[in-house]
Design a protein around this nucleic acid. Structure first.
Length: 345
DNA sequence: AACCGGGTCCGCCAAT
DNA sequence: TAATTGGCGGACCCGG
């Protein structure tokens, strides 16, 4: 059960199992094969995103994934902007993939070729992890793999999506949704977040953060955040901006932080702080704080041998049980198991 | 595991 | 009138 939506509770889903013989993180012993399936006409940005995130920074760097761009057949694939990209493989690439990613495409060109849907279903049945970016969710939904589950797609397509797939519950206000075996993400740039999330699941927070830094993007946008931030575009002075307050909180994570303190820092009443916090981040201060603390704990667990008790204190948890509880909720495993898996990688 | 004291969060409403 | 703010009550959640 693995759904990262700030507000919703997890829905039934089977746990991640990527390729055979993995532990519950979907780690792979051999090279993890990723097939990015370009449906015509493909949204080129969505296509490039996972390739960029999952490929080595420079040729020659140690690769963690073997990424293949494939189409319904080998050869040129039209993009939504007219130019073509070259698929180096056809649907056969899905047969050996550990992860299949479906980027956005022009949904007006549906229905998706039946052979592609069959190949995706077969890959899933084999145990491959299936992910979609943006309108790629339309193709994923057509396979039936999203039935009865929550999913994300581009906010502008939410209505059309729920009309077309009434059995799928669209979450309009999240960046991505992770069911372990099936993942969906919101529009365009959220594909970056989803890809980084997969790196984090597969290789730990440190690797994902390094990649994010390298790409010069925000490393810690969680799935449960608002897709778009309400910005008073126009003349009004940017009166409310909690970025500074959140930054302040991050610097003081190790100590207790009450709403009253945040409100004081921001110069608002508690009630208004709550409202603004939600509109900016899509969640509440406490929930946000707890996730940040867990993230810090992940980092400490990966990079130090400090006892759990000490890790807990340094992250602002009052006790080890408190850390354990929230760690479990966010990462879906225990601190010790997490450290065993990722320490030294 | 159940419990409790205090903090958090949100609907509602009045004030601005 | 429309929009924003802040106070309050109470359900809910968190830490111990």
């Amino acid at each position: 059960v693995l759904v990262l939506i700030a507000m919703a509770e997890p829905s039934p889903a089977r746990l991640a199992s990527t390729s055979g013989g993995n532990d519950d993180y979907g780690l792979i012993s051999a090279m993890h094969r990723v097939a990015v399936l370009a449906l015509e006409p493909v949204e080129a940005f969505d296509l490039a995103t996972p390739v960029q995130v999952l490929s080595p920074d420079r040729p020659g760097d140690d690769a963690r994934y073997k990424v293949t761009v494939c189409g319904c057949r080998r050869g040129p694939v039209k993009t939504t902007h007219g130019y073509a990209v070259h698929a180096t493989a056809g649907l056969g690439a899905l047969r050996s993939a550990d992860t299949v990613i479906i980027p956005g495409f022009d949904v007006g060109s549906r229905p998706v070729e039946a052979a592609a849907l069959r190949a995706v279903r077969a890959a899933h049945r084999r145990g491959a992890r299936i992910a979609s970016i943006c309108t790629g969710a339309f193709a994923l939904a057509e396979t039936g793999l999203l039935d009865g589950r929550s999913a994300a797609t581009h906010w502008a397509y939410v209505e059309e999506f729920s009309r077309s797939f009434p059995r799928v519950e669209v979450s309009p206000d999240v960046l991505w949704v992770d069911h372990g075996d099936v993942l969906t993400s919101a529009g365009v740039a959220a594909g970056i977040d989803l890809s980084l999330h997969m790196v984090r699941i597969d290789h730990g927070a440190a690797v994902a953060n390094a990649k994010a830094r390298r790409m010069v993007v925000a490393p810690l946008r969680d799935g449960g955040q608002a897709q778009f931030i309400e910005a008073p575009a126009g003349s009004d002075p940017p009166t409310g901006d909690l970025a500074a307050t959140r930054a302040w909180a991050l610097e003081h994570l190790h100590q207790p932080i009450a709403i009253a303190q945040l409100a004081a820092h921001a110069g608002w009443s508690e009630r208004s702080l709550l409202r603004r916090f939600r509109s900016e981040t899509g969640t509440t201060p406490l929930r946000w704080l707890l996730v940040q603390r867990v993230r810090r704990a992940q980092d400490l667990l990966e990079t130090s041998d400090l006892p759990i008790e000490v890790v807990a204190t340094r992250c602002g948890f009052g006790s080890a049980p408190a850390l354990r509880r929230h760690f479990e909720r966010v990462v879906h495993t225990t601190p010790t198991a997490y450290r065993r898996t990722f320490r030294g990688k």
